[in-house]
Design a binder for these strands. Structure first.
Length: 182
DNA sequence: ATACCGATTGCCT
DNA sequence: GGCAATCGGTATA
């Protein structure tokens, strides 16, 4: 999907965009290898009004991508060993992003298996998904323009389960996690 | 300058 | 179910 169409789709609240991204294909072409997954699990993170968001305390070098207009990715490093990737949404100045927590490998499976060091559970969990796609903080802020990173619409899931977000200690009451159910 | 802790994962019991 | 691994970001002095 081209960048302008994508910006139109992503230029809305992460909470609204997140469930609509289920079934979409997210892909990367890193190290000459194209890898792609169908998104099955996502979470929405907002900005100044979301204590669980990295952007809650304002713009910093790390979170800068979250404050841009939708259409790029935000990748962060956590627990001293894992990377997690987000699709930035919303308008410029209002930090919002959708954390990709799980997907079904559909292209470049061999490469993903090599990166993961295993052949199963390649892209379940945010850290695993980012690793399978070859994403690190070096890629944070990169545009989703279809060149090295891209996004394509797909078959929406029949049913979507909505739950609380995983692994956070603040704003735990918000049900902003969306999981494809079939 | 120093301390604390996390949008996690995989191995161990 | 419990817990160690491991380090950058953010807070506190």
């Amino acid at each position: 999907m081209d960048l302008s169409s994508l910006q139109r789709f992503l230029g809305r609240n992460a909470v609204d965009v997140a469930p609509e991204l289920l079934g979409w294909t997210f892909y990367t072409t890193i190290g000459d290898a194209r890898t792609a997954v169908t998104l099955t699990e996502v979470e929405a993170y907002m900005g100044a009004d979301d204590p669980a968001s990295h952007a809650y305390r304002g713009l910093t070098p790390r979170t800068a991508p979250m404050f841009e207009a939708g259409g790029l990715i935000y990748v962060y490093f956590v627990y001293g060993m894992h990377f997690c990737a987000n699709i930035v949404t919303g308008i410029e100045g209002e930090a919002q992003a959708v954390l990709m927590r799980g997907g079904i490998p559909i292209a470049g499976v061999e490469v993903m298996a090599k990166r993961r060091g295993r052949t199963t559970n390649l892209a379940n969990g945010p850290g695993n998904l980012a690793q399978a796609l070859g994403l690190t903080t070096a890629n944070s802020g990169w545009p989703i323009d279809g060149s090295l990173i891209g996004l394509e619409p797909g078959q929406p899931p029949e049913r979507i389960a909505t739950t609380r977000r995983i692994g956070i200690s603040k704003a735990t009451d918000r049900s902003w996690r969306f999981v494809a159910d079939a």
